[in-house]
């Protein structure tokens, strides 16, 4: 029984990471119609930034590093949109061009990691060391922190989107770009805010997961690939659908890994992606546009 509970917890941990990654992707897609292939590289960038902080300021509190890194990711996300996306959006046929631009940027960033940090893996400290034993099962404190932090992030994001003027502006642009211009919203700025928010989400995922996986230049790619499957499975542009899909696929991955081995997880994800595209291209939430 305890094995199943531990599998369930592992599924929740993975689901939490996929939720953060894919909600960022779907937020950007829903608002800007950009499929951001560089989201995985932003995930990796956060891990390296945190690594630099922890290496140079050993005495710095974990949570101080956590929030400084996230603040930097918000700025980086905003600047990333301004430098790489905004000029492309003004070109004819931009929706295809922007895919190449984000993919190219991802490759550039990943190779910079290789040049700066080398191919050897780095480590990040965990938020909390040790485990909690609750009756018949145990959970590491860091895993518990991942689940709590992810859920808290999702609640804060929901409040941010529904209650703040910036969040409402993001939803407004997603629903009617023309309507947003009519009420005088600066659509360019709103696009920047979306990338800043997605940068923070990728950042939280990066800081939370890399203490488990170690840091290397391409560590963001598997998470990005799975985040992409989650996003399509959930329904492009739908945050609620994406959240459901993240936790469902997190559980699926754990079960597949337990029964057949971890190397089967990605192939199964790709099969799920193909099946979804064939039988329900609108995804769980049915919002394909």
């Amino acid at each position: 029984m305890s094995t199943y509970i531990e599998l369930l917890i592992s599924g929740l941990v993975l689901g939490s990471i996929y939720a953060l990654m894919s909600v960022g992707l779907t937020l950007i897609y829903g608002i800007t119609k950009v499929l951001n292939y560089a989201q995985g590289s932003l995930f990796t960038l956060t891990a390296y930034l945190a690594f630099v902080f922890f290496s140079n300021f050993v005495s710095m509190n974990y949570f101080v590093v956590f929030f400084i890194t996230l603040a930097l990711m918000a700025v980086i996300g905003f600047v990333f949109e301004k430098i790489f996306i905004r000029p492309v959006r003004r070109l004819p046929g931009w929706d295809f061009t922007v895919i190449i631009v984000t993919l190219g940027t991802a490759l550039l960033i990943d190779n910079l990691f290789l040049v700066i940090f080398g191919p050897l893996q780095k480590t990040l400290p965990r938020a909390f060391e040790g485990s909690l034993v609750l009756g018949a099962f145990r959970i590491t404190k860091h895993n518990l922190f991942i689940i709590v932090a992810a859920l808290l992030t999702i609640v804060i994001l929901d409040r941010f989107l529904s209650k703040t003027r910036v969040g409402m502006s993001m939803r407004a642009v997603a629903q009617s770009s023309e309507g947003a211009r009519i009420v005088g919203l600066d659509v360019d700025k709103v696009f920047g805010y979306s990338f800043a928010t997605a940068g923070v989400l990728a950042g939280i995922a990066g800081i939370l997961l890399t203490p488990r996986t170690l840091i290397y230049p391409l560590v963001g790619w598997p998470v990005f690939q799975k985040g992409l499957v989650v996003m399509v499975f959930g329904g492009l542009g739908s945050i609620k659908g994406t959240l459901y899909a993240a936790f469902i696929l997190g559980m699926v991955e754990i079960i597949i890994s337990y029964v057949f081995g971890a190397r089967w997880a990605l192939p199964v994800f790709i099969i799920i992606l193909i099946v979804v595209l064939v039988f329900r291209p609108k995804g769980l939430a049915g919002r394909w546009q």
Partner: peptide, 9 residues
């Protein structure tokens, strides 16, 4: 004329 409302708000 074509409204341009935010339909999910």
């Amino acid at each position: 004329e074509d409204r341009n409302l935010f339909t999910e708000m």
